[in-house]
Amino acid sequence: MAIGGAVTPGRKAKWAIIDIIVVVYALVPVLWIVSLSFKTKDTLADGNFIPRDWTLQNYADIFATDEFIRPLINSLGISIIATLIAVVLGMMAAYAIARLDFPGKKALVGVSLLIAMFPQISLVTPLFNIERELGLFDTWPGLILPYITFALPLAIYTLSAFFREIPWELEKAAKMDGATPGQAFWKVIAPLAAPGVFTTAILVFIFCWNDFLFAISLTSTEASRTVPAALSFFTGTSQFEDPTGTISAAAVVITIPIILFVLFFQRRIVAGLTSGAVKG
């Protein structure tokens, strides 16, 4: 409902226009890419928003080679594993920060903030050298590890805000009901923090999925190259051919998991999950 006033037709129209402007502004580049991905090679540069000559050839091309499928598997695997680990570790750390009083708590929060602020580009060269020494270069763990490091501060921050909202008495009640601290956490606190966990999972997944900097610097072959990095290696069939069509098709394809991921988890982000726990 509109705040502060009745919903008149005039107001409605005004809001409708603003909404349309925002949506168009946000979606035009995306639709442009979608449009390009359906164009044939000849009409690619004709400047038409709606393709005159529809084709699925670009999609067929990218799925015809390992050049795209292999990176897609890498992307999915690396992002999901990194998200999983970051969220689980983040949950435990955030819970400790929100609930417990331990020496070095302020330092932990400060350091994690520092990591989040650290310019990633300055770490690329050291990481490259370290990973080559350790044999992690161009492997899945070679990407998963830095992703976790940079996703953790985000996860800890988001999650500790959610944990703080959960009434502490619930945990005491669980303990009195015979739960070990672990059971109290996993059976009572974690389910209540679920909206926060899903929100964090979405943010971390998007971060890992979209990363280009580490992906291009710490990989060299299809063993671990993710889609954003692989896209930059796309070539046409000959060196005179422009790969715009296939790059567009790949860009559309890699957007789909993110949309699915968000849609899937958004339904779990139910506001007011803790209502009814305590009188308030």
Partner: peptide
Amino acid sequence: MVFQSYALYPH
């Protein structure tokens, strides 16, 4: 134990 706030598990 019965708590003042009841502390029921909302989920």
